[in-house]
């Protein structure tokens, strides 16, 4: 089931209700069971998301090396809180607990690109690379 949810997520960028209903039919499980699993995991969203996902690492190393300041800067640059998507659907801002690049703390990941040893001053320049 997890693999199926990942596949839907990869195709749409989120889990549309229609796709979940179809998955329930094909896997012969109640929709409630699919919803239960999907809502349990942080990787899935029921809402459409931005074209780019900005993940601000709040793992321990990032947190004590100033990850909170990076988040402040991103919140003001994007005008949304974590979990939010900009009105133009360009970015979704998220916090994650550790992307496993602790030696590079603090770290931000935009889509697949990881930016390490970040300073708040660099944040806006990084966002400019994604449209």
């Amino acid at each position: 089931m997890l693999a199926r949810l990942h596949a839907i997520n990869a195709e749409h960028g989120y889990l549309p209700a229609e796709a979940l209903r179809q998955a329930a039919d094909e896997l012969h499980v109640p929709l409630s069971q699919i919803y239960g699993a999907a809502s349990f995991y942080a990787a899935f969203s029921f809402e459409p998301r931005g074209r780019h996902t900005v993940q601000v690492c709040q793992g321990t190393a990032c947190y004590i090396r100033g990850g909170d300041k990076i988040l402040d800067k991103l919140e003001s640059a994007l005008g949304v809180r974590p979990g939010g998507t900009t009105p133009d659907r360009r970015f979704t801002l998220e916090t994650v607990y550790c992307v496993g690049s602790c030696s590079m703390a603090p770290v931000v990941r935009v889509d697949g690109d990881t930016y390490g040893r970040l300073k708040p001053e660099r944040v806006e320049r990084i966002l400019k690379r994604y449209d």
Binding site: Y63, G100, S103
Partner: peptide, 12 residues
């Protein structure tokens, strides 16, 4: 499933 924030041994 290395979930401890601040650890990346298993990833490596």
């Amino acid at each position: 499933d290395e979930g401890d924030p601040g650890a990346y041994m298993d990833r490596t």
